[in-house]
Nucleic acid binder design. Structure first.
Lengths: 271, 271
DNA sequence: AGATATTTGTTCGTATGTATT
DNA sequence: TAATACATACGAACAAATATC
């Protein structure tokens, strides 16, 4: 069986598209199909005739609406002026995370939920990087560490340092050859960042944790350079477990304090 | 420090929004902020005055464009008729996966990439479910298995059975209390489904694999019912490793065959 | 540097469709 | 059934951005 046959068969079997609710949605699907059918790649310009009112049998406003949908899906971007028009783009990781962040807007995962994944994935990420980082990459990691090397003086600085600590993990992820793994890790970090509880926790000074985290990361850079995958995995695993323990503990204390105060802060979701 | 202070501080520190490229984008952001600020929840109706041309200082078409963006982000849905309008919704898992699928459209992850995550996550998922499934859930799993119990007779049936096999994992995920973990697992399954290579592999008959997969899943249901988390984890780990081994092996064979034939099928991305 | 052509972005008025009461 | 309140769609004109000559 050829690739094409397989593709069409699978396509028939899998994609059960919902009936479009209006003209704009139908056009969105139509243009997506055209892109797919013609194998357009990022950077390619959409032929203007595909977007013409005559071809689509819709007015300019409706077509614009469809384009806006494709745009927010990260599939195209438009440019004005001569030679402008709609161009195929690849959805960026950041944009994808922004879109995904809406998924857990109203029903946030718990700290334990997030760490259940981090504990599994970040060690693998670290292990996969052992012996594969060049000097420039190592230096970038060291530079990130330097941002929280010194004792913080203000609450704001404390907070910024914690964010940089998370950044360390993002930078690490960015070096992974497994884009999928990197993406999920960065997404998990972003979820942590955005959680109100975590943000509050991040602002409570904790010199001891800072010290040990720093220690982990210095060690990690060393074993990554040495190419010891097993040791890197183990280090990260310990780091994750310690971090989770700390976060859960602080969250419990906070909840207890708030319970005593009798206050119920239903903080609005941060979009 | 209060929750509100923490939130605003963090907000300032984290969200560095790119300047909107046009009026519609600005309105999109503005409305999102209004929803967030007023703590609107799924089901709530957006006050019509927020969408009025006077308030937003924009025309109908532009406002509509902004609404279309919010709609494709899964944040609102609109209803016609009296009492209709724009309503806040929670982004559904399916819609989120659809949005995410665009991320790896042009640069697909490899089978190894996907299994690097599946191997870590699915065993945890299984372990977390041990002893927590009621009879209805167990029955749903058994029903899924029945779909590929019998020997397939046609290629199409073979293919459908493989999809049902993947469905087993989706159903399993749907029972998890960790929505985040469930989401990532289902997304990984979807990535596998959509890969052209996998679809081709799925169509090559393999009675032995079907048999062992079935065996794994029957055993898994048993230990889940018995509440043996450790055994569930181990079973799933083995199943994942075996599945990966098989997929990689078949992919290598396929590539070899195609190399001999001298053909290069650049299959268009399936949107 | 400045005029010009091309293409997206925005507006306004109007008309039609659709679901509730 | 009819009136109502809302979304959806159209089209012509105008504004803004940007590449080319």
């Amino acid at each position: 069986m050829s690739e094409a046959e397989a593709s069409s068969l699978a396509g028939r079997a899998i994609v059960a598209r919902p009936r479009p609710r209006n003209r704009a949605d139908a056009i969105t699907a139509q243009i997506r199909d055209l892109i797919s059918l013609h194998g357009l790649k990022p950077g390619d310009r959409l032929p203007p005739e595909w977007l013409s009112e005559e071809f689509l049998q819709a007015s300019k406003g409706t077509v614009r609406e469809a384009m806006k949908a494709l745009q927010t899906q990260g599939l195209i971007r438009t440019r004005t002026g001569p030679g402008g028009g709609a161009f195929v783009t690849a959805l960026s990781g950041e944009q994808a995370i922004d879109l995904l962040s809406n998924l857990f807007l109203f029903e946030r995962p718990s700290i334990a939920d997030i760490y259940a994944l981090r504990k599994q994935l970040e060690p693998e990420l670290a292990a996969g990087l052992a012996g594969r980082l060049d000097e420039a990459a190592l230096e970038e990691l060291r530079a990130t560490i330097r941002l929280y090397e010194r004792e913080p003086e203000t609450v704001e600085e404390e907070f910024q340092q914690r964010l940089s600590e998370l950044d360390f993990h993002s930078v690490l992820a960015s070096f992974s050859e497994n884009r999928l793994l990197a993406f999920v890790c960065v997404f998990l970090q972003r979820l942590l960042r955005d959680m109100a509880v975590c943000r509050a926790i991040y602002m409570t000074p904790n010199p001891a944790l800072r010290e040990t985290a720093l220690n982990y990361q210095v060690q990690l850079i060393r074993v990554l350079k040495a190419g010891d995958a097993q040791r890197a995995r183990e280090l990260m695993r310990q780091h994750m477990e310690e971090a989770e323990r700390y976060m859960l503990e602080r969250a419990a204390i906070r909840q207890h304090e708030q319970g005593r105060a009798g206050e119920r802060h239903h903080s609005p979701p941060s979009l």
